[in-house]
């Protein structure tokens, strides 16, 4: 299954530091591939270096692409981090 979502980062700290680390940890729990795109740059959502190089601060727009057998659950959980709903 392939899920694509256009999201706005609402987490206060953007996709940096703790939120980025959390995002990577969660992404790695799932079998599906996770890609995050900001502008023209697309990175592997299971990579902390990739996510940090995106330098996606609060209010920036990102595209989340999740592809695999558990894509639905993965996308839902990752969206919560981006929206700032979950921070621990």
């Amino acid at each position: 299954m392939l899920i694509e979502k256009k999201l706005v980062i609402k987490n206060e700290q953007g996709l940096h530091a703790r939120p980025a680390a959390l995002f990577v940890q969660v992404a790695n729990k799932y079998e599906s591939d996770v890609l995050v795109r900001k502008g023209k740059e697309e990175v592997n959502g299971k990579s902390i270096m990739g996510l940090l190089t995106l330098a996606a601060g609060k209010d920036s727009k990102v595209y989340l692409k999740v592809n695999g057998p558990d894509a639905k659950e993965a996308a839902e959980e990752l969206e919560k981090i981006i929206s700032g709903e979950r921070s621990e």
Partner: peptide, 15 residues
């Protein structure tokens, strides 16, 4: 050092 482990195990870097 948790941050260090994340860098070390980074998929993009390894790939």
């Amino acid at each position: 050092f948790n941050a260090h482990l994340l860098v070390l195990e980074d998929r993009m870097l390894i790939e």
